[in-house]
Design a protein around this nucleic acid. Structure first.
Lengths: 332, 332
DNA sequence: GCAACGTCGTAAATCGTTATCGCCATTTTG
DNA sequence: CAAAATGGCGATAACGATTTACGACGTTGC
């Protein structure tokens, strides 16, 4: 049988109310008494039961984090940002993987709410109607991190992916390319379809270049698919020489394809991509890329969540963080 | 005010005990009654309160996972293995980062136990005495994943790193090298110091090669340090031509150093490393490596934990998983 | 010497479940 | 046909804290 607050009270010759006061940092306790109680806690090895506390106080100091796949560096990085701020505010994290399956996402939200989390951070390629409905039943705040809400209703933290793509493509155009590939992971991802692709199109149109659907290539979001995609690209009737990819894994895929064929970047092709992870630095040439501040996205999302959980006023629930370009060598 | 079991009971004209039976799948309920209750649950949108349930049943169906840094692919991969098996057995995961700081590790164990987790999976470079003492206060099972217990007392899941290093070095020796570098992350890591290094030494001794401390290089466990280490290696009085590294990030570091100097792998140097992550496949040449089954390490650790939590008999609490070599091109 | 204040105890009500009994109505059994 | 077993369900006591209200006691200040 574990030590309870009663045991401590008896041992310290005080009431359980006083022990509770001490444990919760209530000021109405004489230093002498406080010390006596703390000693007993130490001696008995008393550990407040967070479950009982949660039931009584209706707060668990725990938040839920639902992520497509923690083994993907994108989400691992984001999660670390969340975790650090969570620690700072003394929240624990229940972490679950959804694998982007809607049914699973719904199930997980339900599950986390059942566990009485004080808040929820959600990540996904897209918010389905089912998920939206499930979220609507929640009585605790929910924040999206690195995840778009097409309807712009939910709280979220992102960068301006559209503008980033626009700027990136303009760099390619500025370097003389007018046949430019956009290699992207699935367009089921709102960010790919609604932002990166649109930014790409806007840049082309701004430069008077006609958009050619053949140059917009949608593949699985994997290295291997990108590597394969290269074979498709080199056989195109068009002669694209500039490439924008939706992330650095895809960039490395085509890059390796190009180089394994004896061609060279940035001489024969120039590449620019999203995300400047570790990967982008270790390949040769290093990749010029849009540095998406993944850690910050997570950290700011968590900070936002704390405000919402505290009922603080928040002027803007849709946060847009700045991005920057990391200039390396895949662009001249 | 949320819907409680009592509301459902009133609505369905049964007692809360019956609702509880239905929710928990107890067979002692007439099908007709069951259906009536389920309908009310659906209609009212009742969500069982896991906190109250946890208090009453003394089980939270939640386990704790303490990891040095989830943003490192090593731990992210392991965690995914844990998570999948946890899901299978309907456990949630509370995940926390320790950054390898002993004080933080102790704090986290304390914290997780306070949250009444049903079990704990712990990862670290090394088990300090403080951590060991804290673990001793736990009444729930604890399993180490990809983490050594020098005293071989705690339950754990690993591979035979010593044997793997031994085999790896023998491959280098077999290819004619007799001056072989062992490039490792910090020796505060038991696995590096007690296993990989010892396997390296045993292989050399087995081949009658004198161990030269100059060829054993301990650095920070980062790409940049490995890249820098190359400059040290090339200026060595000795003429090492074979290299074993403790993981693939370090391998890529030296590899890039070598190639940026216009030298070539495997012509001028041969490299073999631990871990065959994504990285090892995307660099050129691809890295021949010891494939450490990270996902499985996590999955098996979680499976073991479930057995321990159920009080099942376990024949061996120190599990050793097999490893294999992934033959690529950094070795001739 | 009295009022005010700080400190603490007592007691009870909650929080939303689970778990243990035991009751009542049917069946089954001898 | 009486007695025993069984199935279905209700009542109620935990579970381990928080919280509130109230009052008592001892100090302190004026």
């Amino acid at each position: 049988m574990a030590i309870t607050i009663y045991d401590v009270a008896r041992e310290a010759n005080v009431s359980m109310a006083t022990v509770s006061r001490v444990v919760n940092g209530n000021q109405n306790v004489k230093p002498v008494t406080r010390k006596k109680v703390l000693d007993c806690i130490e001696r008995l090895g008393y550990r407040p039961n967070a479950v009982a506390r949660g039931l009584a106080s209706k707060k668990t100091t725990t938040i839920g984090v639902i992520v497509p796949d923690i083994s993907k560096s994108f989400y691992a990085e984001l999660s670390r940002g969340i975790a650090d701020i969570a620690t700072m505010y003394e929240y624990n994290i229940i972490l679950s993987n959804s694998d982007e399956r809607t049914a699973r996402e719904v199930e997980l939200i339900e599950d986390h709410l059942g566990k009485q989390v004080d808040g929820l951070i959600f990540m996904s390629d897209s918010i389905s109607e089912e998920v939206r409905a499930e979220m609507a039943t929640a009585t605790v705040p929910i924040v999206l991190a690195g995840t778009l809400d097409e309807q712009n209703k939910l709280a979220s933290v992102n960068i301006d992916y559209e503008q980033a793509a626009f700027d990136a493509v303009n760099k390619l155009i500025g370097n003389g390319h007018n046949e430019i590939i956009f290699l992207s992971g699935s367009f089921r991802s709102d960010i790919n379809r609604l932002c990166k692709k649109q930014g790409y199109i806007r840049a082309l149109q701004g430069a008077g270049i006609t958009v050619n659907e053949n140059l917009i290539i949608e593949i699985d979001d994997t290295y291997d698919s990108a590597y394969e995609a290269w074979k498709q690209i080199k056989n195109l009737a068009e002669n694209p020489t500039g490439i924008l990819t939706a992330n650095d894994v895809l960039a490395v895929g085509v890059l390796n394809g190009i180089r394994d064929d004896g061609l060279s970047v940035p001489t024969d092709y120039e590449i620019i991509c999203f995300e400047h992870s570790f990967l982008a630095r270790i390949v040769r040439p290093q990749l010029t890329s849009v540095a998406v501040p993944l850690y910050d996205l997570g950290a700011v999302a968590m900070r936002l969540l704390t405000k919402l959980m505290n009922g603080e006023e928040v002027d803007e629930e849709q946060v847009i963080l700045p991005f920057r370009f990391e200039e390396r060598n895949s662009l001249k």
